[in-house]
């Protein structure tokens, strides 16, 4: 089975994001990076598919040259081959999806896996866009997946905790949510393999962004709050404030 997992390098979730002087990007000083959290569930799903059905897992990443670190982490977790589509700028999901789809046209794939959302741009759309551009079925936000005989049975998380069940033919695009699996940490064998792996780098074939950034701003400041009181004695005053001052109940 040919499995492709698309990953993204993103600031770690404990990063403090401040707009940079250009007003369009964030200040890069002091930011650490990691594989975007949900992509790790996609990597794990890819490795589990390989373990069950045999085959090859290729990691595909569009990002800056520094993203080789994240790509090597994916190899260390158990992926087999890696490709980096180099683009140094922050790109939107349309540009990213277009570049990934362009590469996937000549990269064999029975299934293409994504994290359902990125922790930075949070567009939750790249996987579905790739599916549309390649004319493939897509199921997003998968929380269970069984693959057999060129087809997949997938459950996705819908509104109110409901689960929608799909049966789709492969090749297909699936985006992965927490709950699908528990992802593994790299072991020593993986880390050694990652060191030896040659990460193929090619320039990303990406069009202009579909939505152009006008500005990146800090969120609107919140007004100073107040401590209503201590313990159970404070609850009546809190309810009064919520009703009369904040007018939310």
């Amino acid at each position: 089975m040919e499995i492709v997992v698309c990953i993204r390098r993103a600031p770690t979730t404990d990063a403090r994001i401040k707009p940079a002087a250009d007003g369009k990007n964030y200040e890069p000083a002091g930011i650490n990076y990691d594989i975007s959290e949900y992509d790790k569930f996609a990597i794990e799903a890819a490795i589990q598919l390989k373990e069950k059905h045999t085959g090859k897992v290729t990691v595909l990443c569009m990002g800056s040259k520094e993203a080789t670190k994240e790509v090597r982490t994916a190899i260390a977790m158990g992926c087999d081959a890696a490709e980096l589509l180099v683009d140094e700028a922050f790109r939107d999901s349309w540009a990213t999806a277009s570049a990934l789809a362009a590469r996937l046209k000549s990269l064999p794939h029975d299934i293409v896996l994504f994290g359902w959302n990125s922790v930075d741009n949070q567009s939750a759309s790249t996987g579905q866009m790739v599916a549309e551009l390649l004319g493939l079925p897509s199921v997003s936000v998968a929380v269970s997946m069984e693959v057999a005989d060129g087809a997949a049975q997938i459950e996705r998380l819908a509104a109110g905790g409901k689960r929608e069940k799909y049966y789709i033919k492969l090749p297909a695009v699936v985006t992965c949510q927490k709950g699908l699996n528990k992802y593994r940490s790299p072991n020593m064998k993986g880390i050694m393999a990652a060191k030896k792996t040659v990460v193929a780098e090619t320039p990303a074939n990406a069009p202009a962004d579909g939505v152009a950034v006008l500005r990146l701003q800090p969120p609107p400041p919140r007004a100073d709050g107040k401590i209503v009181g201590k313990g159970a004695d404070a609850v009546n005053e809190l309810v009064r404030l919520l009703r009369e001052e904040a007018k939310v109940i």
């Binding site: 939750a124 759309s125 579905q128 866009m129 549309e132 897509s138 997003s140």
Partner: peptide
């Protein structure tokens, strides 16, 4: 941007060769 909107509107935008401002 409900679970349904988040799912298919990205596909629709791509079909129209457009980006998406999500959420």
């Amino acid at each position: 941007a409900t679970p349904m909107g988040k799912d298919f509107v990205a596909r629709a935008a791509a079909r129209a060769k457009c980006g998406l401002a999500a959420d």
